[in-house]
Design a protein around this nucleic acid. Structure first.
Length: 410
DNA sequence: AAGGCGGGGGT
DNA sequence: ACCCCAGCCTT
């Protein structure tokens, strides 16, 4: 079904829009992709636009597969502006795959501190080991091998192989889901399996024969700079006249998004336990948030009144460590959000009670000097949060990374 | 198929 | 205050 919009040709995809409204079409069928003429026009305009508007990024200065890989892992669910400084530090510390493989896990996590999704760092470290063991210390060109590396899913595989090796591999991620949904006027739920099949098929159908990497990056750039979630800048879009969603004025409806439930309110306490000038850290459980990373003793708070909070604090620290503390001051309160939770974190100071007795040093327990804590503060929501990440499980190595307590006076 | 995993940018 | 972000993995 050809379509005419203004003076431009158009394409079958618009048929989806009309038919979907009639509820006659099963969008799992992917026989509704653009014509060759549409695709040629789109590619030409997209690349032309990209030549003029591609942003500079450190990982775009090269096609070194290692750097492309590092950038793609860091960019998972993380915006470009956030990644840039982390990428620079990471590459400086680990300039190539063997260097990364030779590092300790806690050193890798240190450089990830504050970036989130810490599993990515562990998976990268592990993958570097695999590449040294099985792939001659290089990122494998072979899709089957690359796809088996931990942390490399379908998107990341396509991105790395297309960008670094000029392989004709499609990608699909947040920006291009939005862009392609609009180019297809697809108004179903894009997270559904049939929709994903359609969108991947579209991503593949659009690929040029050569320079798929540049094309894929252009798609993402257009999605992130022009085809915005709300208020897309259609007037500046090289595909404006190719876009049925724009033609129908439905940019705010497509793609459909799910409303998220409001975050749950949680109250937590963190305790800065001091003993002989040192501060206590505990390694967190291997499951859940900040799995296996180091933190101040922290727990969910059920009490309201200050005196009850102090009793709860003493009891909780005893549970977690086996020894007693004397609460001394409330340092500060910090609010921050973590996915579905809105956390109000009270930071308290307490003193180890039995100065004359050595607390048994369990592997999940560390005493750090203040300067070690000051070294690398973890910033959350622009504030110094008293928590600390880092160090592998049972490695016995000294804690190399840290955070600091809030510096509030009271 | 759904849920967990983090933190911050942009409006 | 809210939405969203160069996804992956487990259940």
């Amino acid at each position: 079904m050809m379509f005419r919009i203004g003076d431009e040709l158009y394409h079958v995809a618009h048929g989806i829009l009309m038919a979907k409204q009639d509820r006659r079409i099963d969008t799992s069928h992917t026989d509704v992709l653009p014509t060759s003429e549409w695709k040629r026009t789109f590619r030409r305009r997209l690349i032309g636009w990209y030549r003029r508007h591609a942003r500079e990024m450190p990982w775009r200065e090269t096609r070194d597969p290692y750097r492309v890989w590092v950038s793609e892992i860091m960019l998972q669910q993380t915006q470009v502006a956030t990644v840039v400084p982390y990428f620079e530090r990471f590459i400086a510390a680990f300039p190539d795959i063997p260097a990364l493989a030779a590092a300790r896990e806690d050193e890798v996590l240190r450089l990830w501190e504050g970036l989130g999704y810490y599993r990515r760092a562990r998976q990268m470290h592990k993958a570097a080991g695999v590449m040294v063991e099985k792939h001659d210390g290089r990122f494998p060109r072979d899709a089957n091998s690359a796809g088996q590396l931990p942390g490399v899913g379908r998107y990341t595989l396509g991105a790395i192989l297309s960008i670094a090796f000029d392989a004709r591999q499609p990608i699909l991620e947040a920006n291009t889901v939005r862009l392609l949904s609009r180019l297809l006027a697809f108004d179903g739920d894009p997270t559904r399996a049939d929709a994903q099949r359609l969108l991947w098929a579209m991503a593949e159908a659009l690929l040029p024969r050569r320079e798929a990497g540049r094309f894929n990056q252009a798609l993402m750039e257009l999605g992130s700079q022009i085809c915005l979630p709300r208020g897309p800048r259609c007037e500046d879009c090289p595909a404006m006249t190719l876009c049925p969603t724009r033609a129908a004025g439905r940019q705010e409806e497509i793609p459909r998004t799910k409303k998220k439930p409001p975050p749950e309110e949680v109250r937590e306490a963190a305790v800065v336990v001091r003993r002989r000038g040192k501060v206590l850290l505990l390694r967190r459980d291997n499951a859940g948030r900040w799995a296996g990373l180091w933190d101040f003793p922290r727990f969910e708070l059920s009490s309201q009144r200050a005196d009850a909070v102090q009793r709860e604090l003493v009891e909780k620290v005893r549970q977690m460590t086996g020894f007693s503390v004397q609460p001394e001051a409330k340092l500060t309160t910090i609010k921050h959000s973590v996915t579905r939770f809105r956390i109000t974190l009270e930071c308290h100071e307490a003193r180890y009670l039995r100065q004359d007795v050595e607390p048994q040093n369990r592997p999940e327990m560390r005493w750090l000097l203040p300067e070690e804590l000051e070294a690398f503060p973890l910033s959350v929501s622009g504030r110094k949060l008293g928590c600390l990440l880092v160090e592998g499980i049972g490695s016995g190595a000294p804690v190399s990374g840290s955070a600091k307590r809030s510096s509030a006076k009271t």
